Amino acid sequence: MTTEQVAKRYYELIQQHQYEQIQNELYAPDAVSIEPENASGLPLVVTGIEALRQKEGLFFTQVDELFGSYMSELVVSTFFFSMMTGMDVKMKGKERKKKEQICVFEVRDGKIVKEQFFYDDFA
């Protein structure tokens, strides 16, 4: 698949909250995930699908209540795509907030090989 095809499929699946299917279908087995340095409670860098799943699970254990989510349109180039995602969320022990992040994905040989997130701390 081309980067544009991967991006469109990602966008389709993320709108349906199909996180596991996204990882199974679109990620390389040794994909890397990078969080910003201010990410509390999450590892900054993980490698491999299982580690990505564990990190995602860890994030959702910190969520008290999710009221909704939203995303921007895709921006696609030859080897990268990006979008803004946001959520209306109450993290455990925190006030309800709308949090946004920029997500950048690198695609090689039809698979996502790296994801990187840019945001102010979710915690």
Rank of each mutant, 00 (worst) to 15 (best):
T61Y: 01
Q16I: 01
M87L: 10
M84D: 08
S40E: 15
S33V: 08
E37C: 01
V63Y: 11
L52F: 00
G48V: 05
G48R: 04
D88G: 06
Q23L: 08
R108W: 14
G93P: 02
I22V: 04
V63G: 11
V63S: 12
P43D: 11
S69E: 09
S72K: 12
F59Y: 08
S69C: 03
T47M: 07
L44T: 15
E35G: 10
M91A: 04
F105N: 13
E20P: 02
E20G: 06
Q16L: 09
A28H: 01
Q16V: 03
S82W: 10
M71R: 14
Y27S: 01
S77R: 08
F59V: 04
Q21C: 00
E106F: 10
N24P: 06
A31F: 15
M83I: 04
G57K: 12
N24M: 11
N24V: 07
E25D: 09
E35I: 10
Q16K: 13
P29N: 14
I49F: 07
E95H: 06
G86P: 02
Q18N: 08
D109T: 06
G57D: 15
K94H: 07
P43N: 06
L52Q: 02
Q54W: 03
E56A: 11
S33H: 07
E37W: 03
V76W: 04
M91K: 07
S40Q: 13
E50V: 08
F60I: 09
I102Q: 10
N24L: 11
F80T: 08
L58G: 14
L66W: 10
D109P: 03
F79D: 15
F80Y: 12
Q21I: 02
I49H: 07
S77G: 11
F105E: 13
A39W: 13
A39M: 12
Q16D: 08
Q23I: 07
K97Y: 08
E50A: 12
A31Q: 13
M91D: 08
M87R: 12
L66P: 09
S77L: 03
L26K: 00
M71H: 14
G41C: 04
K94Y: 10
E95I: 02
L74A: 02
D109Q: 13
K90P: 05
H17I: 03
I22G: 06
L52A: 00
Q54R: 04
L58S: 15
L42G: 15
M84T: 09
V45F: 05
I34C: 13
K94D: 06
F105G: 10
E20F: 05
M83K: 03
Y19A: 12
K98S: 01
F79M: 08
A31M: 13
E35V: 09
K98V: 02
K92T: 08
E20H: 09
E73R: 00
R108D: 15
